[in-house]
């Protein structure tokens, strides 16, 4: 086993274990923190795949942004962190059957796909340059559209969150 495999196993275990905690833990705050570590593990997988910029983005957006947003939502909601989610399941048969079918489909997909294992011998190359060129070259339109979308969202948030008393006067 090469060291990379070993690291992959550790990261995969982290992601899957944290995923289980997210789904099954009775305290919602634990679920949120576990989600965070799951994101972190995904970032590690990106690094393992030589995608350094993507890993950094994963950390900034998911760990530093979305997880914190979720945590904020939980912490600012009144009394939500003392809440324990309901553990009794009502529709065991249908739910179980659906999940099993989904698992089977996924497994079939995984085993039937012809995975092309690429072994790179070349040195690690930085990707920021290519990503930048792609953004400013072929993908300029989606990039600009995303920028406009974000700007609209930002302005919308400001307008919604604004104090409305001034308009009445």
């Amino acid at each position: 086993m090469v060291p990379a495999d070993f690291v992959f196993l550790i990261l995969a275990t982290l992601i899957v274990a944290c995923g289980f905690v997210v789904v099954f833990h009775s305290k919602i705050i634990y679920s949120a923190f576990a989600l965070l570590f799951s994101f972190f593990g995904v970032g590690g997988i990106y690094i393992l795949l030589n995608a350094d910029f993507l890993a950094g983005t994963q950390l900034i957006v998911y760990v530093g942004g979305i997880s914190v947003l979720i945590l904020f939502g939980i912490l600012l909601t009144k009394k939500i962190y003392n809440l324990t989610t309901e553990e009794t399941s009502t529709q065991k048969i249908i739910g179980g059957a659906t999940s099993l079918a989904f698992l089977g489909a996924l497994a079939a997909l995984i085993f039937n796909t012809d995975w092309q294992i690429v072994t790179t011998t070349q040195e690690f190359t930085p990707q920021t340059l290519e990503i930048g060129k792609a953004f400013m070259g072929n993908f300029i339109l989606p990039f600009e559209l995303a920028a406009i979308l974000l700007l609209v969202a930002l302005i919308g948030a400001v307008i919604i969150g604004r104090d409305e008393k001034k308009e009445e006067i």
Partner: peptide, 21 residues
């Protein structure tokens, strides 16, 4: 690291969650 600056900005956001925790 090739993206040293980006990496430092990213990893320091990890500390934020520690503080919340």
């Amino acid at each position: 690291i090739n993206i040293g600056l980006f990496y430092i900005l990213a990893i320091s956001s990890f500390g934020v969650t520690g503080i919340l925790m």
